Simulated scan of single mutants.
Amino acid sequence: MSTDFQQARIALGLRLRELRAEGGLTGRQLADRLGWPQSKVSKLETGRQTAAHDDLKAWAEGVGRPNAAPELAARLRVLESHSRSWRRQLAAGHRPVQDTLTVEYERSKVMRAWEGSMIVGMLQTPDYARHVFSAYADLHQSPRDIEDAVRARVRRQESLYQPGKRYHIVMWEAALRALVGPPAVMAAQLDRLSGVIGLNTVSLGVVPFEASLKLPPANGFWIYDERLVIVEDWHAELWLDQSDSVALYRRVWDALAGTAAYGPDAHRVITRCRRALGAV
């Protein structure tokens, strides 16, 4: 969890405590009024739990300050600009998440990606994407709008062919070898990667297993026009727009990209991964 995110959550908790005190309520009295466990009031006030929008509205009404609800909602939006939990994002399925990301791709000219565990979404085949979305829907117990999500992801890939766009994508060899789908799906996916090499809008690098790494492979992330970084974790996405954070991730990307194979060398790594699948 980012320091900025935690500080914002603590600041929101202090404001909630202030409003409760101004209303002349103890924590237990407010919990009873709202029908919550007292522990929830305590966690929200101390920044140990992230409030939902409905929580903040109920809090404002419970302390007799319904006019404070817009202020609290604004504070939460600032907090969520740093961390967007998958539980909330996927409440309506994967399709809305894909649509939100598409906006960032459309407004960006130069994008850089690092991925060490699976094929980046912009290069996924429909079958590969289908297995990814199914796995995450099971993990997060979210609505299974798999086909809508696949279509949204594939449509976004049209920007790979738009003049003026530039994609710098680097992946670890492990991402090419991870059997996210059955061998036939993986074979088609690797063939897709081979077909991308040579596009004048895409620079595809693969860091082979034998490369001497300047940094350990870690979380995947995208950098959009040096203005925004989106980092994916199991529980949430981090959306970072502070200049120092963006600069840090750019240094990480540069270090990893500097060890990657490109062009014919990248094609050779992809080919040996393809051969490892056997006769498919």
Rank of each mutant, 00 (worst) to 15 (best):
V246D: 11
W253K: 13
Q124M: 11
R177F: 09
G62A: 06
G27P: 03
V120D: 06
E71W: 03
R268F: 00
V206K: 02
K43R: 15
T3K: 07
R130C: 10
D244C: 11
A266D: 09
L204W: 04
W172T: 06
R112V: 02
E158M: 08
D138C: 05
P216V: 13
A260T: 03
S194R: 05
E80L: 08
L204Q: 12
E104S: 11
R84G: 13
L213D: 08
V170F: 01
G181Q: 14
M171S: 03
V185I: 15
A92I: 01
L56F: 07
V78D: 13
R107L: 13
L79H: 08
W222G: 00
G35E: 01
R88L: 13
W36L: 08
A113N: 15
L76I: 12
V231P: 04
M118P: 01
S108P: 03
R77T: 14
T271I: 09
V202Q: 01
A135P: 07
W59E: 03
E210I: 07
P96L: 11
T102W: 12
G181N: 08
Y167Q: 05
S159R: 10
R112L: 09
R84W: 14
W114M: 01
G116W: 08
A257D: 09
A58R: 15
R87D: 15
R275P: 01
L160M: 09
G220T: 09
L215I: 09
R144F: 05
R156H: 06
E147Y: 06
K109P: 05
L25K: 03
R144K: 14
G116Y: 10
